[in-house]
Design a protein around this nucleic acid. Sequence first.
DNA 1: TTTTTAAAAGACCGAACGGTCTATTTTAAC
DNA 2: GTTAAAATAGACCGTTCGGTCTTTTAAAAA
Lengths: 193, 193
Amino acid sequence: MNKAERTRRFIIEQSASIINRKGMAGTSMSDIMEATKLAKGGIYGNFESKDEICVESFLYLTATLADQLNRAVLRGKTAREKFLNLLDAYKEIKNTDGGCPIMNFGVEADDTHPGMKENVKKAIRSAQKRFFDIISNGIANNEISVTVNPKNFSIKVFAMIEGAILCRRVLESDEQMWIIMEAIRLEFDSYLL
Amino acid sequence: MNKAERTRRFIIEQSASIINRKGMAGTSMSDIMEATKLAKGGIYGNFESKDEICVESFLYLTATLADQLNRAVLRGKTAREKFLNLLDAYKEIKNTDGGCPIMNFGVEADDTHPGMKENVKKAIRSAQKRFFDIISNGIANNEISVTVNPKNFSIKVFAMIEGAILCRRVLESDEQMWIIMEAIRLEFDSYLL
DNA sequence: TTTTTAAAAGACCGAACGGTCTATTTTAAC
DNA sequence: GTTAAAATAGACCGTTCGGTCTTTTAAAAA
């Protein structure tokens, strides 16, 4: 990794959490300059535009998060362990970093950011697939009842978690997230064979 | 309602959906000037700042929405009718107006907008209370099983709906919302006596 | 170590930002 | 219809915006 690649990565790392918190429109180049302690030239030598930094920041945030979640899943042996580990990993997403990038960028990426919207779409699909795979495998292994529709259940669980993240963020309390996570767990356990 | 009051209201009505779509930071005074066909003086004669317009727009959006939802509930006689009408009313929230203001403003109202955050908190609580009241009354009327925890269930349903709104908005498809709404309906019906 | 190449600094740019203020127009009281 | 008061227009303000470009500095090749 040469100098430019390292600087580029550094800029993304420093910018990502700011953009996740303040939004794309709400984050200015001077915010990024301050966070990186770099001047304009140092930044624009590595990126074409602020938009590019936003896109790369989103990809970095989701990749980091996906890695965390995937590792949590891998720590489990059974479908139940994998599923519960994944729920716990979601609980660990900290508000201080701005919460879930899918929601933050998804809300802002309206028709004026079509490229970003596509990235968020992919992120949603892969988040749902993580649940889907656990359930499908659980069914294949006779761990989970065949009456469960893996697609519908993974969509539902993902929606509940995103709702929970929103509530925690706005209400500044973990209570509702716990209630929601417990409800998910209860329903999941009711499907175990 | 004198001229000033009418103009003030007009500015809010015209600004609200823009701010809901583009965000507070993403909406400029020139956007508002264009939408209202008013000059700076006309706007700043009625509002202290852009921030004030944002706050009033949020209150207007949530009040309008609350009215829609409340009317849907009132159209039902039984708890089940009220509940299903409410779900249907949520489905009707159109993406073209920017989706759910609770999510849009909630995500953007970070620590730099403490006043706005309080407003969003209240909006969440009252949205959840609408579900809570239907369930509680349903239990009191022997329509719904006493085994249902109204608080937990209303929190869960609200989270699912917000998640569904996010998915619909980003994926630009109603499919997942339908799946989620149907799941809510099924669970609700399982609690009926 | 010298030389060549790559990377970063920071002055600078025009445009757009939120907001102010006076002149003018519109409303409403008489 | 005249006049006093309220409301709006729009020129103007300083600041900040995203972005460019030349100069300087640092890295890497010789």
